[in-house]
Nucleic acid binder design. Structure first.
Lengths: 214, 214
DNA sequence: ACAGTAAATTTACGCCGTATATTTAGGGAG
DNA sequence: CTCCCTAAATATACGGCGTAAATTTACTGT
């Protein structure tokens, strides 16, 4: 009805991103649709196209926004410190973790981090190619740590979530202990973390150990 | 027009899966839609619902089908052997790699493999919980190796693919060598693999090293 | 011969991203 | 003060997706 509203009620790109981020955090990535974000501002979906080229660009920007929260100590952080900082923002926005790998290097913060990580690996004596590969492997594995955290399902809806977990539990509990002694013994782990702190410590340690010796 | 065709022209679940797998291999995962698979058999999309509960079940079955190609030496294979076998089928069907992690443990072959891997890690002296976690990390990281293989884009369409790669190249090549010495030095790696064999060797070695020491 | 079940069809719905064309508020130049 | 340009939205429409529900018909067993 009224194209071009008074300047006071213009959309703001930054605020759109905040909205999208909030949606992702509370209802999962699938809930981040153009219509949903637009609706939150009582606006047509097409209005977003003025602020973002297409949805993919919005997602890129979303990752960038998430990385704004990165807290790197100014002076020469080591590998573990960098990874821990990244881990923190990822755990704060797990829904974004799965779209991060492809997009990380499209953001400025991501490039900075990539440069840092490759540099640190070079300093450990790795060849340029090895350092590059290990950096990618490290980042991807770290992200996988968050995405596949036992108990996470990538589905935000609690009903579906519980259904999935119940199915998983049923499957694991019905295993023949004779045929699957080890899975039986560790079934609880796959259904939910006993200790998140320990989980991330161990994962990180394993990755850094692997890097240090390759 | 003709509900319930003569028995000779019935759909076959296995053949539907073959079709879906072929589509995934040639045109990517996004091309695997119910309509597309149905069209290949000149059949209504709804026909598939007789053979699969829903699309997700079809994807589960697709992963299962892929794992049929797993070739494990019968007697006591070690960790590297198991991972190498998995790597082989994943590289044969890279489009399925991204949906494998969540689904692996819903398949029989996946459970067998999980049992094997956890067992091997237990034998290396890891605690039950540690072995469970490391097995997941290992599998996920291995899969990430395939999904994020430099040059891969998860987009099958060659036009889009090239556009993406060109954008990436442009971005990397325009980096200030002063500010990003390491990324500049290793830019070529991110754009395409010099040596696939070496890439997978190194990735696998790094992961196994990490596991062995944690 | 006939009932019951198996395996498809038809139709419809509500989502999604986005191409295209149109509308209008506000700011700068004459 | 007016005119015009452009910024920023709306309206409309399209094709694609997964799937719910009801219907139809070929075959199987009694």
């Amino acid at each position: 009805m009224t194209p071009r509203p008074p300047a006071s009620e213009r959309l703001d790109r930054g605020e759109l991103l905040s909205t999208a981020l909030a949606i992702a955090d509370t209802d999962g990535l699938d809930a981040v649709t153009l219509r949903r974000v637009a609706a939150d501002w009582s606006v047509t979906p097409m209005a977003l196209y003025w602020h973002f080229q297409h949805k993919d660009a919005l997602l890129d920007a979303l990752v960038e926004r998430m990385l704004d929260e990165l807290e790197l100590p100014g002076d020469e952080p080591d590998l573990r410190t960098v990874m821990t900082a990244l881990l923190r923002v990822l755990r704060a926005h797990p829904a974004l973790a799965e779209i991060t790998p492809i997009r990380l290097m499209r953001t400025d913060a991501g490039l900075d981090m990539g440069e840092r990580v490759v540099g640190l690996l070079r300093a450990e004596g790795h060849s340029p190619v090895a350092a590059a590969q290990l950096s990618v492997l490290l980042l991807n594995a770290l992200i996988a740590l968050v995405i596949r955290q036992p108990g996470e399902t990538a589905v935000a809806d609690p009903v579906q979530r519980d259904a999935l977990l119940a199915a998983k539990r049923a499957r694991l509990k019905s295993l023949d202990p004779q045929a699957f002694p080890h899975l039986t013994e560790t079934a609880d782990f796959f259904l939910g973390l006993p200790d998140e702190q320990e989980y991330y410590e161990r994962g990180l340690t394993m990755l850094l150990n692997g890097v240090r010796l390759s």
